[in-house]
Amino acid sequence: MSQKQEEIRAVLRTVDDPELPNVSVADLGMVHDVLVKEGDVFITMTPTFAGCPALDFIKKNVKTAVEEMTWVESCEVHFSFEEKWSTDAITEEGKRQLKKHGIAPPPENYQPGEEWTVDCPYCGSDYTSMENVFGPTACRSILYCTSCRNPFEAMKPVVDYVIT
């Protein structure tokens, strides 16, 4: 990776998803490719959920943040469906930030269509149950921890679809 690409990637670690405070689009695994041609930057991103109303804001925020860099003349942001985003793309830092804000990272080894739960982000207990798989946004679910009696949210697992 070139010096300039590194710099862009660093900036992308400061642009947060408007629906997940303090979790950057880079740590969510949404940045697929960064191309630099002198002062022009081309960024390919993979959308999380279809119809996620935050996508337009993300696009704008990324463009603005990158264009603030002194050597950047223009930045184009493009969403591509060629690569499919999955919750497996969330980085360790992303998971840490999610937990810090009371949102459990998605479970591992999830099978599409099957029921799932995760450990409580507050007390770590696995004594939890699903309240509503559909939470306040497309990407989150609502669970309940029986140990510390707290409701909490979790990132809904979305993984590549294998036809059976």
Partner: peptide, 26 residues
């Protein structure tokens, strides 16, 4: 359609199928 000859459509079908199992399960 994930096996469709039109790649941009096959890609979208794959993407939608990652989200849609939640709807069907519901």
């Amino acid at each position: 359609i994930t096996k469709s000859s039109y790649k941009p459509l096959a890609n979208i079908a794959g993407k939608v199928l990652m989200e849609q199992p939640y709807h069907l399960a519901h």
